[in-house]
Design a protein around this nucleic acid. Structure first.
Length: 872
RNA sequence: GCGGGCGUGGUGGAAUGGUAGACACACAGGACUUAAAAUCCUGAGAGGGUAUCCUCGUGCGGGUUCGAGCCCCGCCGCCCGCACCA
């Protein structure tokens, strides 16, 4: 065999073309075989793929190719999350249309993805910005509107002043817009909302069934939904009424502490607060102060508990003749519960801080276990743990749970303003999903506003409501709203003048159902329910953990909404979820403190140390910390350059090796070099094997010698282990196993020229298996080797190698011998050697005899086939 | 503050309660070569003896066990998520 190096630059495009021509990865909805749907989170077409994409799609591709080899009908599609603000910003900067920019980017990125050799069914490609896609989203909207899953209401919303649009709660991170990073302001606007909160309980329950999701993500969603069980209580106002209200409605999770109540606090945004402020300048000023603090966000942690007495009192509901003062307090949120609380300072830290500041009574009503009622006091720390209720009239002596039940019965029976004074209630932190965005580059909301008929949905026959092409971004704000004619229509009901809704949908709507569209991308309706129900839920979904709440929660809601409107039959979109880690790289800084890209660096090693200098100027460069690849720190590596230099297989292989997939992986030049060397090593091994076979072709195989059997065992074991590792997404371990198999085969090939035919047969068999194991990870190299080995067809179409269970069993085992838990030797015995025989051998060992020094062992632990421990 | 995760050689990391450090990267030595690259071989947790023998060793301190990186209790450190949620 010639010493020719494997040339990925030549072979990779070749095999990509072959797969394309053979339609190797096109999946059919009519294929009767078992289905497997693997999906990676589809990319936003920003212009170029980055290493995070390479990692993500390499993992998904291994899963897809593996299950294909396992004989399944695999669906592995790709699309584009193509609406979004960057396109509008680019349009402004480049004086082009957002669609032009987006479609160019899609073209460029598609070429990049193709160069990776992914086993993708490109016939199902979708882009959310095309009417072919979003018309169906509009149809879904109309169905959801009819099913009362959507509402339009005026409410306080998060306004991003930089992106000039509204954001959903989930899209505000630390008080800042998730994309712009600008501090979010509060505005009162009329908006479209998906009623996700109607599904709060169901979304929570559903998490229990998602056993193939990371526990971490389930927990984050659980916390986000934020269920709390408690009671709603009415407190009657006393005295002459200065207000329209006669009572105050509060929510509490601790009705058992009602006897310890010492004040009522209203949110600054409470309706009653507003009413009182009209005639109370001090209160007006206080409310304004709260709002200022509120929008400044953060630092809330240290913000002092502050309040202002309103002059109002309520009757204490359980202590006859007692009253409680009503305050407005800065820490009470209007968005949670009823916007009003009762304060029980002894058992809530926040209430205690407030009570100390305003000198309000602190009455303990929960007695910690084993503490004497006479000596128990609360000073600076509220007691929030369990105990027995005391100081509490008819509740005294009860447990907390029993007291809660008693209070519920007691207040349930009493009437205030004609209604029950108290009722059990469950509250959720989850708010409805506001989807109106004041932007052009999004899916138009298919609704018109008619003065006569009101706000009504566009009839489905008039879909799609298409974005106008002739738009200008000269002015800030919503280009759709500024368009001279687009929004003016005649009402389809009365024929009168009407206007279109000019808000577009949040782009997270687009990604909330694309996985369903892939199952029938050309259907005339949003889904083909038959296809969707056969493919969904997605068997394995792979993406970044940053979508733990946003995209994954929305998609779970949307699937339920699609079920309610008859488009799919299941609740959950993703059966298995895997969240992969980020791709990181060292950072480099020049003496001037500027970030320097890795491509400008020359690294030198000297013994243990490393240093860097600039490749051109030779200036010393400081090696900084390892960070997520980002443009700002210039520590990015361009996939295109890696593919051009080393080939796609090398990049894929490196992304799968070393680090466990859920953890961050550090991109290093030496790591890539290593991956590339391994590629050549495989190619040499194949070449040598072919050569060996050629020279010994005439010899017939009689039977395997022990060396040959040993080699076969290594190969079978590798297939067995790697199958399990791929199924468990432990790619780094699969890679290590492949290395081991390769090492064993290379060793054999090195001495096989003079070996018996049986060993050559075992070698050939092992190499073929190796190539098949390699195929999901380095598919181009594998095809090249497969062909070189003279195998017919494509390795991509070859069934996964079988495992002979007999090959997984060893007939001899090495048993380590410990003395007092420390390893002192080992014995090699036939598998299944009885305890008595092991004992005999162990006790006759020289080391053991020496250490026993004539005494019998105190204890002898023998686990057959595993280990022996001699206790002295 | 609440919740979750992690801590193993120079580095990334392996290890159903059973030989800690698989596999890889980096490093050192050697072979081949005029030389380099490539390739192949060898070495390596630390310390000592300096053949194949001993001691220590998975963040720290305890515990359970014949046996603990793994299980339990208490700390320390780092990372992530949520955060005035009544």
């Amino acid at each position: 065999m010639s010493a020719e190096r494997y040339n990925p630059r030549e072979m990779e495009p070749h095999w990509q073309k072959v797969w394309d021509q053979n339609q190797s990865f096109v999946s059919s909805n009519d294929d009767p075989r078992e289905r497997y749907y693997v999906l990676e989170m589809f990319p936003y077409p920003s212009g170029r793929i980055h290493m995070g994409h390479v990692r993500n799609y390499s993992m998904g591709d291994v899963v897809a190719r593996y299950h294909r080899a396992r004989g399944k009908n695999v669906l592995h599609p790709m699309g584009w999350d193509a609406f979004g603000l960057p396109a509008e910003n680019a349009a402004i900067e480049r004086k082009t249309h957002p669609g032009t920019w987006t479609r160019q980017n899609i073209g460029a990125m598609k070429a990049q993805l193709k160069s990776m050799g992914l086993a993708i069914d490109w016939t199902r490609e979708i882009a959310t910005c095309e009417p072919e896609y979003y018309q169906h989203q509009q149809a879904l909207f109309i169905d959801m509107l009819a099913a009362d899953l959507i509402t339009r209401k005026k409410s306080k919303v998060n306004w991003d002043p930089v992106d000039m649009t509204v954001l959903a709660n989930e899209q505000v991170i630390d008080g800042k817009g998730w994309r712009s990073g600008a501090p979010v302001e509060q505005r009162e606007l009329t908006q479209w909302f998906f009623k996700i909160s109607d599904y709060a309980e169901d979304l929570l329950d559903g998490l229990d069934g998602l056993t193939e999701w990371p526990e971490k993500v389930r927990l984050m969603q659980r916390n986000w939904i934020g269920k709390s069980e408690g009671m709603r209580l009415l407190f009657e106002l006393t005295g002459a009424q200065q207000t329209s209200a006669t009572s105050i409605d509060v929510f509490t999770t601790r009705p058992d502490t009602i006897f310890g109540a010492s004040f009522i606090a209203l949110s600054p945004d409470h309706q009653l607060t507003g009413e009182l402020a009209l005639n109370n300048p001090a209160l007006t000023a206080f409310v304004a102060e709260c709002h200022q603090l509120g929008t400044a966000t953060e630092a809330l942690e240290k913000a002092e508990k502050k309040g202002l007495f309103t002059g109002l009192h309520v009757k204490h509901p359980v202590i006859e003749g007692a009253t409680l003062p009503v305050y407005v307090a800065n820490f009470v949120l209007m968005e949670y519960g009823t916007g009003a609380i009762f304060g029980c300072p002894a058992h809530d830290q926040r209430d205690l801080d407030f009570a100390r500041k305003y000198d309000l009574p602190v009455v303990p009503v929960v007695l910690p276990p084993g503490v004497d009622a006479d000596t128990f006091t609360v000073t600076n720390d509220a007691y929030v743990d369990g105990g027995t209720i005391f100081n509490s009239g008819f509740l005294t002596g009860l447990t907390i749970d029993a007291a809660k039940q008693q209070v519920a019965e007691y207040f349930g029976a009493r009437r205030v303003d004609g209604q029950a004074q108290g009722k059990v209630e469950v509250n959720y932190r989850l708010r409805d999903w506001g989807i109106s965005r004041q932007r052009y580059w999004g899916c138009p909301i298919p609704v018109i506003h008619c003065e006569v008929c009101g706000t009504i949905a566009v009839p489905k026959k008039d879909l799609p409501v298409v974005l106008p092409e002739d738009v200008s971004f000269d002015r800030p704000g919503n280009a759709l709203d500024h368009h001279p004619t687009w929004k003016h229509v005649n009402c389809h009901q009365c024929g009168g003048a009407a206007t279109r809704e000019t808000d577009t949908m949040d782009t997270f709507v687009d990604s909330s159902w694309y996985f369903a569209r892939f199952t029938a991308p050309n259907a005339k309706t949003p889904t083909d329910p038959k296809a969707a129900n056969e493919w969904l839920p997605v068997d394995q979904y792979i993406g970044g953990v940053e979508h733990a709440i946003l995209h994954l929660l929305y998609s779970r809601f949307f699937t339920r909404a699609m079920k309610a409107t008859g488009h799919v039959a299941m609740n959950e979109p993703f059966k298995g979820l895997f969240t992969q880690g980020m791709v990181t790289h060292e950072t480099y800084k020049s003496a001037e403190g500027d970030w320097v890209p890795p491509t400008d660096i020359v690294l030198e090693t000297f013994g243990e140390g490393r240093r860097a200098k600039h490749f051109k100027t030779g200036q010393p460069i400081t090696i900084g910390s390892v960070e997520k690849m980002s443009k700002s720190k210039k520590n990015v590596v361009d996939p295109d350059e890696i593919v051009a230099t080393y080939g796609a297989d090398t990049a894929r292989w490196f992304m799968l090796s070393d680090s466990p997939p859920e953890r961050d992986v550090q991109w290093t030049e030496s790591g890539v070099e290593g991956a590339s060397r391994f590629q050549q090593r495989i190619w040499r091994l194949v070449g040598e094997t072919i050569e060996i076979v050629k020279q010994s072709a005439a010899i017939a195989v009689v039977s395997d010698d022990s060396e040959a059997v040993a080699l076969r065992k290594v190969a079978h074991r590798a297939v067995h282990q790697i199958s399990g590792d791929i199924e468990g997404l432990r790619f780094n371990r699969a890679v290590a196993q492949i290395y081991e198999l390769t090492n064993a085969l290379v060793r054999t090939a090195g001495i096989a020229a003079a070996a018996p035919a049986s060993r050559i047969a075992a070698l050939t068999d092992g190499v073929e298996r190796l190539i098949q194991l390699l195929a999901p990870m380095m598919p181009h190299l594998a095809e090249t080797c497969w062909q070189a080995l003279g195998k017919s067809g494509l390795v991509a179409d070859a069934p996964w190698p079988s495992v002979d269970p007999a090959m997984l069993v060893d007939d001899e085992v090495i048993i380590p011998i410990q003395v007092n838990g420390k390893r002192r030797g080992e014995i090699t015995v036939p598998k299944g050697t009885p305890v008595a025989e092991i004992e005999r051998q162990v006790l006759s060992m020289e080391v053991i005899a020496r250490m026993l020094d004539g005494n019998p062992p105190k204890k002898l632990v023998i686990v057959p086939d595993r280990i022996v421990n001699v206790v002295i």
